[in-house]
Amino acid sequence: MKWNRYLLLILMVSPVLGFSQDSFKGGSKEKFEESKQKIAAGLDAAGKEKLEIALRVLAMSAIYDRDHQSQLRKQSFDELVRRRLNGKDLAETYALANDYVKADHQRKIDKLEKEMSVLEAKKQKSDALKAKLSVLKAKPLRVDSLNGAFVIFCAFTNESDQVLTTYETVIGYGSTQDLNDGWSGIKGAEDGVVFAPKETKILSSAFSFATVKENSHVIDWQGMKFPSTDFAAYNLAMDCYTSMLVLKGVKYELKNEDRLSPKEEQDLSKYRSSLDQLKTNIPVLDDLIVKKP
Rank of each mutant, 00 (worst) to 15 (best):
W3K: 15
N4F: 11
N4G: 06
N4D: 14
R5P: 02
L7F: 14
L7Y: 10
L8P: 00
L8Y: 07
L8K: 13
L8V: 11
I10E: 06
I10G: 07
L11R: 07
M12V: 15
M12K: 10
M12F: 14
V13S: 06
S14M: 15
P15Q: 07
V16Q: 12
G18N: 14
F19R: 10
D22F: 14
S23Y: 09
K25P: 03
G26A: 01
G27R: 10
S28H: 07
K29G: 07
E30I: 13
F32G: 04
F32V: 09
E34K: 12
S35L: 00
K36D: 12
Q37G: 09
Q37C: 05
Q37L: 14
I39M: 03
I39Y: 02
I39P: 00
A40L: 15
A40W: 04
A41I: 09
A41W: 05
G42Y: 08
D44G: 11
D44V: 10
D44W: 05
D44S: 03
A45P: 06
A46D: 11
G47T: 02
K48D: 04
K50P: 01
L51W: 00
E52M: 13
I53P: 00
I53R: 03
L55R: 05
L55G: 02
L58P: 01
L58N: 03
L58A: 03
A59W: 09
A62V: 04
A62L: 07
I63P: 00
Y64P: 00
Y64H: 07
H68K: 08
Q69S: 08
S70R: 14
L72I: 07
L72F: 06
R73K: 14
K74E: 11
S76K: 10
F77D: 12
F77R: 11
R82P: 01
R82N: 04
R83D: 09
R84Y: 06
L85V: 11
N86Y: 03
N86V: 09
G87V: 05
G87W: 06
G87F: 01
L90S: 03
L90E: 05
A91V: 15
A91Y: 09
A91I: 15
A91C: 02
E92R: 11
T93K: 02
L96E: 12
A97K: 03
A97Y: 03
A97R: 02
N98Q: 03
N98L: 08
D99H: 12
D99C: 05
D99S: 11
A103M: 09
D104I: 02
H105A: 08
Q106I: 10
K108N: 15
I109R: 00
I109G: 01
I109V: 15
D110M: 11
K111P: 01
E113A: 08
E113K: 14
K114G: 07
K114S: 13
E115C: 02
S117Q: 13
V118A: 09
V118F: 05
L119S: 04
K122C: 01
K122F: 04
K122T: 02
Q124R: 14
Q124C: 07
Q124P: 01
K125N: 06
